[in-house]
């Protein structure tokens, strides 16, 4: 159609953010799950602190169940998947039924493997579905504006998580450049001041670890 309403821009942006949040946190979770084999109880505490989510878990086992599948846990990966779906479902005409179906499949997988004894085995399918979603978005989403906004959300989220999870400066640089590339193409109004401060922190050698909170604030305030 060549026209996108403000409401849809919002949904596209948050669809990008939530799908990326599910994708990255699931991948990170795979490592944590592995660490749990040898590590004592409570290994998840540091992770919660980094992501700034409440540490409400009582055991490794309960963490696995609640953090992955908790429908009542607003910080669970499942809740984020549900939010991705809520944003996607109103975008069928922009995304196409084909692309939307991968979000539906990812959500369905989450719901069907809640009681499994080997969650990582099943959740690999969610990662595959999300990769297919992104591949499909490149191929099927006809409007360039839509793709750019979607990817803008994706890279904001990825950079946000990369900062929180102490990724290496080189990785942060890479994600920052991807974000800038998309931002320029979106025609969205954003704060150039906050972006340049973010650049200073990431590209000009300022230690993002010590400036973590400021970097996150810049990122979070890009569109306000």
């Amino acid at each position: 159609m060549g026209i996108i309403s403000m409401e849809k821009v919002d949904h596209l942006y948050w669809l990008g953010r939530y799908t990326e949040r599910v994708y990255t946190t699931l991948r990170v979770f795979f490592h944590i799950y592995d660490h749990m084999i040898e590590q004592p109880e409570g290994v998840y505490a540091k992770y919660c602190e980094k992501l700034n989510i409440p540490e409400i878990y009582t055991s490794n086992r309960q963490f696995v169940q609640s953090y992955l599948f908790g429908a009542d846990n607003p910080d669970s990966v499942y809740s984020n998947m549900k939010r991705a779906y809520d944003n996607a479902i109103v975008l069928r005409d922009e995304l196409s039924s084909t692309v939307l179906s991968y979000v539906q499949l990812a959500l369905d997988t989450f719901e069907s493997c809640r009681k499994t004894t080997a969650p990582l085995l099943e959740l690999q399918q969610v990662i595959d579905d999300l990769l297919a979603f992104w591949g499909g978005a490149d191929d099927y989403v006809e409007e360039e504006d839509c793709r750019n906004i979607l990817k803008c959300g994706k890279y904001v989220e990825r950079l946000d998580l990369s900062i929180r999870l102490d990724y290496h400066t080189k990785d942060l640089e890479k994600e920052y450049r991807k974000l800038c590339n998309r931002l320029e193409k979106t025609n969205l109004d954003y704060s150039k001041e906050k972006l340049s401060r973010l650049e200073a922190i990431i590209l000009q050698g300022e230690d993002p670890k010590s400036y973590c909170q400021e970097a996150l604030a810049c990122l979070g305030g890009l569109f306000t």
Partner: peptide, 25 residues
């Protein structure tokens, strides 16, 4: 999706000078 129409909610549409318009972002 199949008819190539814009899917709009009430807030996307408005009346001005006795015509109906769709407002984009």
């Amino acid at each position: 999706e199949r008819t190539g129409s814009a899917l709009a909610s009430c807030t996307d549409l408005f009346v001005e000078d006795n015509h109906l318009y769709y407002r984009d972002y």
